[in-house]
Amino acid sequence: MKNVVIGRYIPGHSFLYHLDPRTKIMALLILMAAAFVVDDIMHLLIGLALVIGVLLIGKISIKRVYLGLRPLMFLLIFTFVFQVLFNRQGPVLYEETLYYSPITIGLVVLTVVFWGFTKKFIRFRLLYFLLMLFTILAILSLIQEPLTFRTGAFVVHEDGLRLAFFIMVRLIIIVTLSTILTITTKPTDLNLGLEQILKPLKLVRINAEEVAMIISISLRYIPTLLDEANKIMLAQASRGVDFEEGKLKEKVVQIVSLLVPMFIISFKRSDELANAMEARSFVPGQPRTRLHVLKWKLNDSIIIVFSLTILITTIMARVLI
């Protein structure tokens, strides 16, 4: 849990921190839209370069962003491999015959098992995973012997490779942009920004202020609830619940022994909290003044204009070319 960087604010002092949260949310949406509009790999790479530029100017360490990307690595690689293997369009770039025999398949299984056991000890897991894929490919293409019962082909088509690369870059851009938002914006400011942006939803009977209040209280109580869950776990552990072991049936009881107290305590807590809020003159849906107000500055306008320019340019590029 501790290594999840998505959604975690890291204090800092660059211009990104001083932007209005509304600006950052809107710019994120606009630029994400632009990333989806682009259909040329070169343009997308320019986009990536721009994003990296923002990271550098905004003094956000690229390592942080990489940590944010890490949980998504599997998705990225999966998309890449899937596209490369199964997209059969465009000219052939590379072709290799694969030989399936009991021996090669056995070796492949061994490789996977070996990888599964050793990956824990390897620092660069991603590279290690790719290495495994290459090893499998090498086994299947290089070992030819009489027991071969079937041959197949490993073909890389240009479109597949191109699309795979394209999707990957697009994903990286989008995730990096979102990470910039969450790293540089306090959850409370983010919430306030969202509330302001969602205000027009009043027309469809969604009260942005109430939604924001719910989010704000959730933010306030998440640490409390985690702490509580931990204590309940300890309390049940002291009654002999071994959370690390147990058959399925025991596991069910273990989870019930956690969830029931959790539910009952939360219910009581929300009841008391509602009382406390009401007693302090809170009336849902009533207008309130606010301690925190957002201030729109020149920088904010510049960023929005800049983002819009990028979106318009990408649309133009797509329509005209």
Binding site: I232, L234, Q236, R239, V256, S257, V260, P261, K268
Partner: peptide
């Protein structure tokens, strides 16, 4: 045996009897 400050942390069974039996059975 450790009794936590809030009994709400440990009570979860349908009856008092079952809840008292939970620890010993574990």
């Amino acid at each position: 045996g450790l009794v936590f400050q809030f009994p709400e942390y440990q009570l979860f069974e349908e009856t008092v009897e079952k809840d008292i039996m939970f620890g010993p059975k574990n």
